[in-house]
Design a protein around this nucleic acid. Structure first.
Length: 575
RNA sequence: CGGGAUGUGGCUCAGCUUGGCUAGAGCGCAGCGUUCGGGACGCUGAGGCCGCGCGUUCAAAUCGCGCCAUCCCGACCA
């Protein structure tokens, strides 16, 4: 393509409402424009990037034996009512009515539609497995869209679905996708990690997230330093291997703690360590209030509570509710005498002599033995993992890093096939439910994540497979006939070799072209001007390393191929 | 939804505290000239319901009230 005939509106300054790098650079490089909050226009160059990513995905999906189809974006409410998600999905599901007052929603995901399709077609185990996917626009009415393409309300997603006759087959489908995802993100040139994850509103038995490692990521993941265990913080297991403490504990004794309602204040006042304090947190779980106990230096992980109680919704109880139930101001709740289900973190079994709130203003209790003085409903892993915790697999050390979730694969099990009755006859003529899996990749988010991970002061540094063009050729003197003739000749050679090239033939000053070339992040840069032509060479620059080379005009094709190969290898082997 | 901030030519922003002449600058855009290897320079020019509405006032970009939009921090998720 010729720059002069392309619509690539680059910006010298970034719009004020862009905060994260990927958003700024996508705008500046003329790849996207915002229409309104959470809705983006993909300009030609941005669309090329999206297409590159989508094509890598398509190739790997095909290799894994999945076939592409396209489902409607608008979906009837009836299907969502069948699975119960019409009620449970929440406000992210945009609902509306048509002229006949029938209810619809915009698809935030497509389990209902695909299950409806397959249950209507598949009758026999002989037809299984069914493995399908689509690449399509999703709409989720996000509470707070932000970070440009990273969290839009409308976004492009690849979603795949598998239907198997038995668990063995389902495991295989899942593994096929796991392996395909590893290949996809590797091919796209991203540094990523597959982590164990919570299944969230999609539901199901277990899942893995694929996280692009970047400090600006919205998720925290726990990674083991010694083995390959990695998990989203929501799910990361906190192991407790201590001995259950049975030490004798003196009788419970109230102690005045005026105004001390935080862990810091209480421990400072009583001269104790946070480890000796029990923090009592009240949560509203599907409308019912429960208490959760963790050590003073720990945080409750609400997702673990939600999963333990198989609940739909878990929220921190309101201040009013806490004060009504404990009959004390916020900060003085304690398990002793509390008439609520009480769930205690396992780690608390490691001690007996604790300080807790007294359910009375300005008062705490000393010498509390949770087994003796409180009625614990259940002990469970309920705390959030922290840096330095032991790995649940190998006992190594866990460290926390940030990541951007670009893919998520779920073993759904019977979640949808049972509520929607997706059944088939097995070889004995017996009816069985299909075992499902679903597998998503945020295509537009991958584009943003690639930039978050690969950029410098000059702009984007696209991994070659994601870049909108393989190569950009700068004609520095478009008015000079000789230079232009040579540039056109080089351009023709490159195109003939299948190198997707952007020829910058604009009547702009050289500086403008250099800056734009860097900004766009195209991996291979070629520069031809009067100076280089006089020397019989074209200058070549590796966008990522900045390393320059000179390629002879005589025998350019071979020299270019060799140089491009070096750059590609440098990418593959980068640290 | 709670907390914080911002809305002034296409973009970045000044002006607002202390109301007052024709609302400014840089970039970008159009024309002409000089330039031409890392975002050139000069001259000329186009482009503004100062987010919207109501109010206060002789007079509002500026003060008050209401609304709207956008961005950032928390709960959602690819």
């Amino acid at each position: 393509m010729r720059f002069s005939s392309c619509y690539i509106p680059t910006l010298k300054e970034s719009p004020a409402d862009a905060e994260v790098v990927s958003h700024k650079l996508l705008l500046r490089a003329g790849m996207v424009r915002r229409l309104t909050s959470g809705l983006y226009i993909y300009l030609p160059l941005g669309l090329k990037v999206i297409d590159k990513i989508a094509n890598v995905i398509r190739e790997e999906m095909a290799a894994a034996g999945f076939q592409e189809l396209l489902l409607p974006m608008v979906q009837p409410a009836d299907l969502w009512k069948e699975t119960g998600r019409w009620e449970h999905y929440g406000k992210e599901l945009l609902r509306f009515r048509d002229r006949n007052d029938r209810e619809y929603c915009l698809g935030p995901t497509h389990e209902e539609v695909i299950t409806d399709l397959v249950r209507g077609e598949v009758r026999s185990y002989r037809q299984l497995p069914v493995r399908l996917y689509q690449i399509q626009t999703k709409f989720r009415d996000e509470i707070r869209p932000r970070f440009g393409l990273m969290r839009g309300r409308e976004f492009l997603m690849k979603d795949a679905y598998s239907f198997d006759a038995d668990m063995e087959g389902a495991q295989k489908s899942y593994q096929l996708m796991y392996d395909a995802y590893v290949r996809i993100f590797t091919r796209l040139g991203l540094r990523f990690r597959a982590v164990e994850a919570d299944t969230g509103s999609i539901g199901g038995n277990f899942s893995h997230e694929f996280m692009v490692l970047a400090d600006t990521g919205e998720d925290t993941i726990a990674v083991c330093d010694s083995c390959d265990y990695a998990a989203n913080l929501e799910r990361a297991e906190a192991v407790w291997k201590g001995q259950v403490c049975t030490d004798a504990c003196p009788a419970v004794k109230p102690v005045a703690t005026p105004g001390a309602h935080t862990v810091e204040e209480v421990t400072a006042l009583l001269g104790i360590s946070p480890k000796q304090l029990v923090k009592t947190m009240l949560f509203s779980v599907d409308g019912e209030t429960v208490a959760v106990l963790v050590r003073g230096d720990r945080e409750v992980n609400p997702v673990k509570l939600k999963n333990l109680l198989k609940a739909q919704e878990v929220d921190l109880a309101t201040t009013a509710a806490v004060e009504a139930l404990t009959q004390a101001p916020l900060g003085f709740a304690g398990p002793v005498g509390l008439r609520l289900p009480i769930y205690a973190d396992l780690e608390l079994q490691g001690g007996t002599d604790y300080v807790t709130g007294a359910n009375k203003g300005d008062t705490h209790l000393q010498h509390v033995d949770l087994n003796r003085d409180a009625s614990i409903t259940a002990w469970a892993d309920l705390r959030e993992v922290i840096e330095g915790d032991a790995c649940p697999r190998c006992g190594g050390r866990l460290s926390l890093t940030r990541g951007i979730e670009v893919g998520h694969i779920f073993m759904l099990g019977l979640k949808y096939s049972s509520s929607m009755h997706a059944a088939f006859l097995d070889e004995n003529g017996k009816e069985k439910l299909m075992i499902m899996g679903c597998y998503g990749i945020g295509v537009s988010r991958v584009a943003a994540a690639a930039i978050e991970q690969n950029h410098d002061d000059g702009g984007i540094v696209f991994p070659p497979p994601v870049a909108p063009f393989d190569c950009i050729l700068l004609n520095l003197d478009p008015r000079d006939e000789k230079v232009t003739a040579e540039a056109e000749a080089l351009y023709a050679i490159l195109e003939k070799q299948g190198v997707d090239t952007l020829l910058d033939d604009r009547e702009e000053r050289p500086g403008v072209k250099f800056k734009d070339a860097d900004l766009l992040g195209i991996p291979l840069q070629l520069v031809l001007g009067g100076k280089s032509l006089a020397r019989g060479v074209v200058e070549a620059k590796d966008r990522r390393s900045g390393q320059k080379a000179e390629l002879p005009l005589n025998g350019f094709a071979e020299a270019f191929s060799a140089w491009a190969e070096t750059v590609r290898k440098a990418w593959a082997g980068r640290g």
